[in-house]
Design a protein around this nucleic acid. Sequence first.
DNA 1: TGTTTTTTGTACTATTTCGCATAATATAGG
DNA 2: CCTATATTATGCGAAATAGTACAAAAAACA
Lengths: 217, 217
Amino acid sequence: MVQKEKKSPEIKSEAPKRRGRPRSYEPDVALGKALDLFRKDGFAATSLDELSAATGMNRPSLYAAFGDKRELYIKSYERYRADARASMIELFRGEVPIRERLKRIYAAALDIYLADASEPRGCFTVMTAASEAVADPEIRAMVLDGFGELDKAFASCFRRAREKGELPASADPLALAQLASATIHTIAIRSRARVPRKELEAIVSGAIGVLCGPVAN
Amino acid sequence: MVQKEKKSPEIKSEAPKRRGRPRSYEPDVALGKALDLFRKDGFAATSLDELSAATGMNRPSLYAAFGDKRELYIKSYERYRADARASMIELFRGEVPIRERLKRIYAAALDIYLADASEPRGCFTVMTAASEAVADPEIRAMVLDGFGELDKAFASCFRRAREKGELPASADPLALAQLASATIHTIAIRSRARVPRKELEAIVSGAIGVLCGPVAN
DNA sequence: TGTTTTTTGTACTATTTCGCATAATATAGG
DNA sequence: CCTATATTATGCGAAATAGTACAAAAAACA
């Protein structure tokens, strides 16, 4: 052996003068790789060997950084939720007319679900976390929180739209919100079965039509 | 060992004078047990040992009867679809007013998803088959067929309701159908996260309100 | 009674899996 | 240069896993 000479790539981050041997990985990108694997195969079908290979971290480093497999899964899920929220939050907040706003929200969702064109990932919550939720209280709490957050965000949209007169006074914001969430769920599931984006967009556009009434408001 | 003396329980079915040693299991009930396990844990997390224990068949018998794990999974899924279709088909066909009809359809769906109160199973298609669908063309075809069948069945309901004047002439049966399917999907997912039946029924009832318009038709 | 046929029961193998123990390596501090 | 600290690298080990070989068992048939 001619010496491995890994050179310890001198991770960029603003050096705070850490004591021991420097890390040869960036926790954030490693977690991103783990997340992608879990999204692809789910919890049980993802092995530590694959996680190790994908992150470039060997097993002990994985444990030191993230804990055991379940903890890594949970941290991946937290990361997924944070990312998803970040890409959606402004769309929910802004002052765009309701139809256009919904259109953008669903487009952002599809961007997440179809990110890898060759192997669509779908939604973490819907594809794997919900399955684990039955038996794992911690995961279940996160899943339920996700449902609640989405329902609330949609409800607030519809409430404001009604106040602005974009929707009839008789509109029920909560019922509309749950259907809007259901539309998120249905495109998440269908995307995983490789339903093409065009079809998913047609579903979205049909849903918006029903939820907001005929275009001529 | 005092001799196992299993007694070969003389399975009931109308004896067609089969040649060799009689089976000590009934294929249909064994497949039902396998289905239940796959619904509970998904494909990867269900081991052959567990399948063997649950069906009462030893490993070689499982292979002889159903093939390898993947084939057993697919046969379980076929069985699930057949059962689900059987419990739904008359509800879709009958001549009940649209709101009541939808209410019964969703109630039947919830009966399936929540069958085991202590560990709700959710929907096979949504919880595990869709995940496998990305990588397995055969499973994908079944999943897509399931989506299509459900969409069509709902669309036919809405079309007939429109013809009967239960819905305005402007109603779009396909868009309504996809939202009705989306509602199926959302309660399937939420049920798996132990959302109580009351809440799921509220979602259903809100959805029916939006899809069919205010009760005073 | 003996042969044929079908299924069961046991055990085996090769591989994969998760988690961890231990030693080597690379940095900072004194 | 030596020590303390933090991380990497190697690889062990016990358990689980999927699939199969083979003999024993239980029936029909001749």
